[in-house]
Design a protein around this nucleic acid. Structure first.
Length: 1246
RNA sequence: GGGCGUAUAGCUCAGUUGGCUAGAGCGCAGCUCUGAUAAAGCUGAGGUCCGUGGUUCGAAUCCACGUACGCCCA
């Protein structure tokens, strides 16, 4: 027996289903059910286990779940492994905050071992939280028990022996120290989520790095990186982007005295100037926003193609050289007006508008232009640096010493160089903001560094790890680069030397440390790199992958990145992360050019062997994970020098951790058979912004290197298809921020919007565009009703707030509610009629056309859903499903309601057919929707399929909550029909070709067109639908359309409430036809004649064209041209005629009679009356099966006539035992309009 | 500065190989329907298809230039 269905209560229903899945262990049963089938391999991109989930995480996870559920229902085996990203600076930062450690040095004081333990604990804590949140999303993965993860977190760093039951071995209890267990989480024998801090993951990266080393790609190099003095760390570009702020710096125009004008290209002296004696009073004009870098100036760069002016200042007769365009250039003119691109970045009020250079010179006594020259002519000129008195400027080989320039000093390098071009061919030096002459400090800037290396000049790197000047910089030594006092000192010195032209306030967007808020500096650092000169190999692999959605051209984006990227910097001077397996011979007599200077170790086994075989420290390491500080104890001995080699202090880039996952988690080193089975992944799906140069990049390059022994990119590729999606925004399309309280936490959305609804929102969204999800109201706290009871705080203690979402409301209204109502309609009538789903089926062929139609549509839906999901096109799947639900609810059920209302009659096969049809449709739809809407489909399935079978009896009189719970609380009775216990254990439906009838679908579509047009005509004629009309005439030149309407005449008649429907050859007697040229078909045939045709065709005598309406061709003469028109070549329309309204749509012409007889009017009144009674029944909250007595009071004779004529129908329709006239209406009698007459009515329940 | 992309109704977006009456949903107004429906249906108002030029019988669509915005790179 079906359980009565009442209000949907979607969110509470989800809680019930979660409980049901857990209690009945449905997911584990699914795993058993699919084990051993052909694999469908999915690899999860690890999520940083560092914070609770927000709604933005749920988008990708919805895809992941949908495709996995779909494949499981479609006969595949799956791994269901979630991943957590566990290492790297993000975790360190949060742990630092947690421990109140402000700087790098404090971490060391705290103890790196304790710090590493805290990082592990934090990761486990948030892994547990994210696991719980994912479960709430209905995301089916082989989850670790969150309680066990928390227990492990607690025991990290202690010697306590912990018991642990892995997901794949529910009957075993392992006992070990927490660290030992944690190091092995997610291994193929245990199952559960993978953690990138696992020993297997780290060790597989060693495998990768060893391969790189063997191919000679690993090297140590210098680079200038954004650096945080307090953080003691270099920052990647991504991190820098996070911390950009509008900052006002003092920028300076500074002049460098020219010493010698030599043409570098010919190395010949310029004959116009004396080469021997130093020039006096001629200067290069440069400009900088970072005065401290002037201490380390080495060269000045120009653009050889640019025009430069020679300007003479009147005040002192000094000659200045700078780019001609800069003389009158309005610097930051747009920014002054419009700000710097963000609301909070408007021009600072305290900063005056910038002056042009000509203004500056005018204010200083005026100037004359003495000539212009090309930048090329200046290349090679020598000048005196602004701080040549500093010791560092005279250090041979630069600071730090570099052998390649051992014979040079900073001072000796001061000359004008060609600024060159970047890899795209754009000039590095351009006119505009500065002076067209760029001060180059190779130790202080990125471009400078590259340029310095190419130009063969020394570098001077002035700053230590703390961001302060090193020894050798005179008064500057010990001062912080970012301290304004340092800039003061620079300006004072320059003034002293007469080199300072002008200082101004200059606002710009400058990188800041996103942790401490301090300004970053550019600092020369030594780091480890992978030489990426094998990028072509990676591009080959890239091309072997399908990138979705196509519109974002992911493959090309990836290619572009691969083309432009620099060598991969894999090191970071921090504590918590992959231990780079690089051991270095620290003996300074071994030069870095010696290949034996360092070694990369490929595995722990290799390390152990090397350590025991002449090395040291293995004992101290053993029993720990290969992390700092423990791994650093291990030393190996250099086979060449016999020295002990020490591991580099650095940890690894976290993208190594994530990129190795297709190897580490699939057991490349440990379970080759598994790896063979599951590699490559069929699908990878992630939020794409940023990932082309992060995860996708690391996946592709690591897989390419791991597959070095193979030549075919197909064999190397780590995944076959990538599905990317964009970002979640608020409803206004703006980013949501944690800091201002607009970021929506996962549980806030889940418990206010509902997970089925959220999933649908994600799935129907075009993945190429941002999703406008909804809005969090930071000022409106709410209490959430979670599965674990009410709460007003998130897991991190943040108050939970109101979330509103128009798209969610729309989704619910358009999809979930109509589906639920269709289901409720069926169930509630099926209960009354005691419909038995196991009864013998009425053959489909003998069911009415509309039944065959919905079943045929169902097959089309099935085929379409499968195709869409196979193609990873969820928006298409959602569109199809929503369209079907609309057809089901607003056409099939609406059209067929009366078939369900008829009184019980065992021999009523038409009614049985209706039930069986609707039942079949609903059950199939629950399966089709199960992957996308797992909760609602489960509830429907349980009631539709499981309750008749198990015979659960609901308590109708009790609240709906108990009823739902009764459905979902499993019944221990044996399953008589052997139907799967959960919709998610079912097979995904296959279309039954025998039931698909595309002609029928087309016919019904035609009928729907006629009905829509008919409704429009009624509206035009001002005739309500309840008023029956005498006749509808339909005509079309298309025989298929005529046939469709004839066969579905009953549907159309009923829907439009007309007595008679006639399909006629012609409406000529009641309407006037109009004919218009169909440009699409006529254009190619007649070309320029088309305009004549277009204008004249409507004026041609209708009789000549009439045959077109019945599908015959016509030849006419227009402007002397003979023209043959096929039926397709004209569009036939209609115009009004008296007594009829007419219209046309898609080649079908309709005429609706509008003349009313008294008899028709009375029937309309009867329909009005029925409607009013039904409304009274509803207002009185009567059950649909309750019987009533109806009384009325009226003086209108026409109404009385109507009652005698129609009382039988009225009583039947309203379940009225009596229909009585009375002259004493009670007070609550309802005055209503019946046609044009007034009547009072009242009802009472029998 | 360079590359890529986008620009269509108040809002969010469709718009196929070019076809003239440019659509949908939401919102707004009116009407209708309702014995599952929190709905739904119909109608209406609302468009310089970013601008300019070109190709074509015909351009939202193709081409060129420009403008604005977004993303990536620098």
């Amino acid at each position: 027996m079906f359980q009565k269905v009442a209000d949907a209560e979607f969110i509470k229903g989800e809680h019930d289903v979660l409980k049901f899945w857990t209690e009945r262990n449905i997911f584990a049963r699914l795993q058993r059910q699919i084990a051993g089938r052909k694999p469908w391999s999915f690899i999860d991109g690890p999520m940083t286990a560092n914070n609770p989930m927000g709604v933005h995480h749920a988008w990708g996870r919805s895809y992941k779940d949908v495709f996995q559920r779909y494949r499981a229902m479609s006969g595949y085996d799956l791994r269901y492994q979630n991943g957590f990203d566990c290492q790297g600076l993000w975790v360190e930062v949060e742990v630092e905050k947690q421990l109140g450690l402000g700087a790098k040095s404090q971490v060391e004081a705290y103890g790196i071992d304790k710090f590493a333990h805290e990082c592990k604990k934090r990761v486990l804590k948030y892994a547990a939280i994210q696991t719980e949140q994912s479960i709430r999303l209905g995301y089916w993965m082989e989850w670790d028990d969150p309680a066990q993860l928390r227990k492990l977190a607690e025991a990290i760093g202690t010697d306590e022996v912990v018991s642990f039951t892995p997901p794949k071995r529910p009957d075993e209890v392992l006992r070990d120290k927490a660290e030992a267990i944690v190091a092995r989480l997610g291994n193929p024998d245990w199952g559960g989520s993978y953690f990138t801090f696992s020993t297997e993951n780290n060790e597989t990266i060693w495998t990768f790095l060893k391969k790189c080393f063997e191919r000679g790609k690993v090297y140590r190099g210098y680079d200038v990186m954004p650096w945080s003095g307090r953080g003691g760390s270099a920052y990647s570009q991504m991190e820098v982007a996070d911390g950009r702020k509008l900052t006002v710096h003092r920028s300076a125009f500074v002049r460098f005295p020219i010493v010698k004008k030599v043409d570098d290209r010919t190395d010949q002296s310029d004959p116009s100037d004396s080469p021997q004696s130093p020039l006096t009073n001629e200067y290069l004009l440069i400009w900088t926003t970072t005065p401290w870098t002037l201490t380390s100036n080495v060269a000045a760069a120009v653009n050889p193609d640019l025009d430069y002016v020679k300007l003479k200042a009147k005040r002192d007769g000094a000659i200045y050289y700078f780019a001609k365009d800069n003389l009158d250039f309005q610097r930051l003119a747009t920014e002054f007006k419009d700000g710097f691109g963000r609301e909070e970045w408007s021009w600072p009020k305290s900063v005056p508008k910038l002056k042009t250079l000509s203004q500056i010179f005018k204010e200083n006594g005026g100037f004359d232009i003495e000539g212009t020259l090309k930048g090329a002519e200046m290349v090679g000129w020598e000048y005196a640096g602004p701080f040549d008195d500093l010791a560092a400027q005279s250090a041979p080989g630069g600071v730090p010493f570099e052998a390649r320039v051992a014979d040079k000093t900073g001072v000796a390098c001061h000359r004008v160089i060609d600024g060159g071009r970047d890899f795209k061919g754009s000039a590095n030096v351009v006119a505009g903001e500065g002076t067209g002459i760029v001060h180059i400090a190779p130790g202080c800037g990125d471009v400078d560094h590259v340029l310095g290396a190419t130009a063969g000049i020394v570098g001077i790197a002035p700053l230590g790890e703390d961001g302060c000047f090193l020894e050798g910089f005179g008064e500057f030594t010990g001062k912080s680069a970012t301290d304004p006092a340092t800039a003061d000192l620079v300006f004072a010195k320059l003034k002293e030397k007469g080199l300072l032209l002008n200082v101004e306030q200059y606002p710009h967007i400058y990188p800041h440390c996103w942790r401490t808020g301090d300004e970053l500096v550019f600092r020369l650092v030594d780091e480890w790199f992978i030489n990426m000169d094998w990028r072509e190999e990676i591009m080959g692999v890239t091309d072997a992958i399908r990138w979705l959605p196509e519109s974002i051209q992911g493959g090309e984006r990836e290619r572009e990145w691969l083309t432009n990227m620099r060598d991969w910097m894999i090191s970071k001077k921090r504590y918590w992360g992959l231990a780079l397996p690089i051991w270095v011979d620290e003996d300074e007599s071994v030069p870095w050019t010696d290949p034996a200077k360092f070694e990369v170790i490929g595995s722990l086994a290799e390390l152990k062997q090397r350590a025991l075989d002449g090395g040291a420290g293995w004992d101290e390491f053993e029993g720990h994970t290969p992390h700092k500080p423990w791994i650093d104890k291990v030393k190996i001995r250099s086979p060449k020098t016999g020295n002990l080699m020490t591991r580099v202090q650095d940890v690894g880039n976290p993208w190594l951790d994530a990129g190795i996952v297709p190897f580490s988690t699939l057991g490349f080193n440990t379970h080759p058979d598994l790896w063979q089975k599951w590699f490559p992944a069929d699908l990878v799906t992630e939020c794409f912004p940023g990932q082309f140069r992060n995860w996708f990049y690391s996946l592709l390059s690591m897989a390419t290197m791991m597959g070095s022994d193979k030549s075919d990119p197909e064999e190397k590729k780590p995944f076959k298809t990538l599905l990317g999606h964009r970002l979640v925004m608020n409803e206004a399309g703006k980013p949501m921020h944690k800091s201002d309280g607009t970021a929506i936490w996962f549980e806030e959305a889940a418990e206010q919007i509902g997970v089925d609804t959220m999933r649908w929102m994600y799935l129907q969204q075009n993945p190429a565009s941002d999703l406008r999800f909804g809005t969090r109201h930071p000022d409106q706290p709410v209490t959430l009703q979670t599965p674990n009871g009410p709460t007003d705080r998130t897991i991190d203690g943040v108050p939970t707030n109101l979330v509103t979402s128009t798209p969610a409301d729309e989704t619910r209204r358009m999809v979930l509610i109509p589906l639920w109502n269709s289901y409720a309609f069926f169930v509630n009538y099926a209960r009354l009629d005691e419909f038995d789903p196991t009864a013998p089926l009425v053959p489909v062929a003998s069911r009415p056309e509309i039944d065959r139609w919905i079943l045929s549509n169902l097959q089309a839906l099935t085929t379409g859903m499968r195709a869409a999901l196979d193609d990873y096109n969820t928006p298409e799947a959602c569109r199809l499903a929503a369209a079907f639900i609309d057809d089901l609810s607003n056409w099939y059920i609406r059209r067929n309601r009366r078939r369900f209302w008829r009184s019980k009659d065992a021999s009523d096969t038409d009614k049985l057919a209706a039930y069986q049809t609707l039942y079949e449709v609903l059950v199939t739809v629950t399966k089709l929707l199960a992957p996308m809407m797992p909760f609602l489909s489960e509830r429907m399935y349980q009631n539709l399929v499981r309750s008749p079978e198990t015979g659960v009896r609901g308590q109708e009189s009790e609240g709906k909550r108990q009823i739902d719970a009764a459905v979902l609380a499993f019944n221990p009775q044996p399953l008589t029909l052997n139907l799967p216990e959960s919709v998610h254990l079912c097979d995904y439906p296959d279309a039954d070709a025998a039931l698909l009838d595309t002609d029928l679908n087309a016919r019904m579509a035609t009928a729907q067109v006629v009905v829509a047009l008919g409704h429009k005509l009624r509206d035009m004629a001002d005739q309500r639908v309840r008023q029956p009309l005498a006749e509808l005439r339909v005509s079309s030149s298309d025989p298929a359309a005529r046939d469709a309407i004839e066969r579905l005449a009953d549907v159309v008649r009923e829907e439009l409430n007309v007595k008679q429907l006639t399909v006629v050859e012609s409406l000529a007697d009641i309407v006037k036809y109009t004919y218009k040229a169909n440009l699409k078909t006529l254009g190619p045939k007649y070309g320029k004649l088309l305009n004549v045709l277009r204008e004249k065709l409507p004026t041609v005598d209708g009789k000549l064209l009439a045959p077109l309406r019945v599908g015959e061709s016509v030849t006419i003469t227009l402007d002397g041209h003979e023209i043959t028109l096929a039926p397709d070549d004209v569009q036939v329309g209609t115009e009004q005629a008296p007594g009829w309204v007419s219209g046309d749509d898609r080649g079908i012409q309709l005429a609706l009679s509008t003349s009313l007889t008294p008899s028709l009017l009375r029937e309309g009144m009867a329909r009005d009356f029925i409607r009013q009674i039904q409304q009274l029944r509803k207002d009185a909250n009567l059950e649909i099966e309750n019987r009533i007595r109806v009384s009325y009071s009226t003086t209108e004779p026409e109404v009385l006539t109507m009652f005698t004529e129609w009382c039988h129908l009225i009583q039947g329709e309203t379940l009225a035992d009596s229909l009585t006239s009375s002259n004493a209406p009670p007070e609550d009698a309802k005055p209503v309009n019946i046609g044009d007459c007034k009547v009072s009515v009242w009802i009472e329940k029998v």
